[in-house]
């Protein structure tokens, strides 16, 4: 058991790949945005990659351990300490009953992940422990951690003394610039050629008005193809409106002139077009980027996107670990 002394800014229980099979009923999958760092954290403590852990956004929590545990910290560097002693990222660490783990504000990256051996053992909802705050389900009481709560843990595994090889870790940009791969579509034909070129050639700033539902972007104007302007009235009045349709996870959803990348707690459908879709292998970059950082988008094919996903999946295995 772990006692939450301070919850951090927005710390949630997540598992990988989140809640499957309910998208058609309006349930987003949730799960960790940087699923690469999350899976590595679980591997370090001997858990299956799917085990529930914590996603700490921007400012991490303060936690007191009610049992001996092996933990791992991955993703953003939140200057973690254990009873005042600094802790390294990307390796398994032993914690004793009564010790206090403190994570602060992210110094590099945005989302820190904490895995504990045995995993977090909250009550699953529809087969997943992932928190989906909008619907108030999963995790602990359906929302972010609060001070005074207790996190139940699974049976300890006591596997320690491992770290992630340097080459198998995501490398978080220190220059605040990110290249994000997208597949054009499903609705790129609603944007005119100039608009398509402008999207791929411009810098886009990640807005502070972003959360686990969507990442808002600030950048140049969009211009539209003829089919977006001359269309039947049931498509709506704005060029970016269309008949309600399903939204892919990762879609760059265009609301008027505001693009919003739909992430893990996405809305499943709506009446705006999705000209581009961020590929799953780029989600770790979304997870580690901070407001006001700059995105540039790079178009790839579906085949290339799947090859990139397989590369990351291959890195999320035992072969990426080495003894400390």
């Amino acid at each position: 058991m772990i006692e939450v002394l301070k919850p951090g800014l927005e710390t949630t229980v997540q598992d990988y790949p989140g809640r499957k099979g309910c998208f058609g009923y309006g349930f987003a999958p949730s799960g960790p945005i940087d699923h690469w760092s999350f899976r590595l954290a679980n591997l370090l403590v001997g858990n299956p990659v799917s085990a529930a852990g914590l996603e700490c956004q921007f400012i991490g929590p303060t936690l007191r351990f009610g049992r001996d545990a092996v933990i791992a910290l991955t993703g953003a560097d939140m200057g973690a300490t254990l009873d005042g002693t600094a802790l390294p990222l990307w390796q398994s660490l032993t914690v004793y009953t009564g010790q206090t783990l403190v994570l602060g504000a992210a110094r590099l990256g945005a989302r820190g992940y904490i895995a504990i051996d045995g995993g977090i053992d909250t009550e699953p909802f529809l087969g997943s422990r992932a928190t989906y705050s909008m619907a108030g389900v999963g995790g602990l009481d359906g929302g972010a951690l609060k001070a005074g709560q207790h996190l139940p843990l699974g049976a300890p595994r006591r596997i320690a003394g491992r770290r992630v090889r340097a080459a198998a870790r995501p490398s978080i940009a220190t220059d605040r610039q990110w290249t994000i791969e997208v597949v054009p579509g499903p609705n790129d034909d609603w944007i005119d050629e100039t608009g398509q070129r402008r999207f791929l050639e411009s810098e886009w700033k990640l807005s502070a008005r972003s959360n686990r539902v969507g990442f808002r972007l600030e950048g140049p104007e969009w211009s539209f193809a003829d089919k977006a302007i001359h269309k039947a009235p049931e498509h709506g009045s704005n060029p970016s409106n269309t008949i309600d349709h399903g939204y892919p996870i990762g879609a760059i959803n265009l609301c008027g002139q505001t693009p919003i990348i739909l992430v893990n707690d996405t809305l499943t459908l709506g009446g705006f077009i999705n000209p581009y879709t961020v590929i799953s292998a780029a989600f770790w970059k979304l997870g580690q980027s901070r407001p006001n950082e700059i995105y540039r988008f790079k178009a790839v094919t579906v085949r290339e996107a799947q090859a990139l996903r397989r590369e990351i999946d291959a890195l999320c295995g035992e072969a990426s670990l080495e003894p400390t």
Binding site: P186, I243, N274, T277, V278, S280
Partner: peptide, 18 residues
């Protein structure tokens, strides 16, 4: 059939609300 990244495909059967 329109790609939505590497995990989704939007199948558009028409463009009317009927």
């Amino acid at each position: 059939f329109l790609p939505g990244g590497d995990k989704f495909i939007e199948m558009e059967l028409g463009d009317e609300m009927s």
